[in-house]
């Protein structure tokens, strides 16, 4: 099938390999402060700032529609060893308000906070996005207990901010609920 152009394949493969290596080297040495103000911040810091700000306003209105949240830390999670970071927080609500009754309320709260509500299909029951932040709520039934899983995460991974991420501890989102 493809053997008709073996040299082109080889060139493409080597080209892709070089691109990957160049990117890896670049990501290891990039100065994140060039991207967005402040030393050692950059994309990751901007992502954290955006998501924290939204969570601080949204969660006090949203969480009571679902139930009680006792633990919700936001932190950076790296993708493999690639130096790309997602900023993410999730919480599990035990014995939540029934899905059918809470769904409209949750959608209303998301819209009130300016999020675009969408229905992504198979893994999330309600999803809202605003800028680089996504909020989703999934109701799941279990033999022992039903749950609603609330997740807030950035959509685009941040790159080149290893030091900033390493120095940034988790942010406790439950403080926004008090």
């Amino acid at each position: 099938m493809v053997t008709r152009l073996p040299m082109l394949d080889l060139v493409a493969r080597i080209g892709l390999g070089i691109v990957t290596l160049v990117w890896l080297l670049t990501s290891c040495s990039s100065s994140s402060s060039e991207v967005d103000g402040g030393p050692g911040g950059g994309e990751a810091q901007a992502a954290k700032r955006e998501m924290d700000a939204l969570a601080e306003k949204l969660l006090p209105d949203l969480v009571p529609r679902l139930g009680e949240v006792t633990e919700m830390d936001a932190e950076f999670v790296e993708r493999g060893g690639y130096g790309l970071y997602d900023y993410r927080a999730s919480a599990q609500v035990l014995r939540p308000a029934p899905r059918r009754e809470a769904l409209a309320e949750v959608e209303r709260v998301l819209e009130e906070h300016g999020l675009t509500v969408e229905s992504p299909g198979e893994t999330s029951d309600v999803t809202g996005t605003l800028g680089n932040v996504r909020v989703s709520v999934v109701w799941m039934s279990g033999d022992a207990v039903d749950t609603a899983d609330l997740t807030v995460n950035t959509l685009r991974p941040a790159s080149g901010d290893d030091d900033y991420v390493a120095d940034t501890g988790p942010t406790d989102y439950t403080t926004y609920l008090r």
Binding site: W23, R79, Y82, L84, T123, R134, P157
Partner: peptide, 13 residues
Amino acid sequence: VANHTSYFDEGSA
């Protein structure tokens, strides 16, 4: 690279 590492993303197909 993000495209290559998005298979377990929340809400993804």
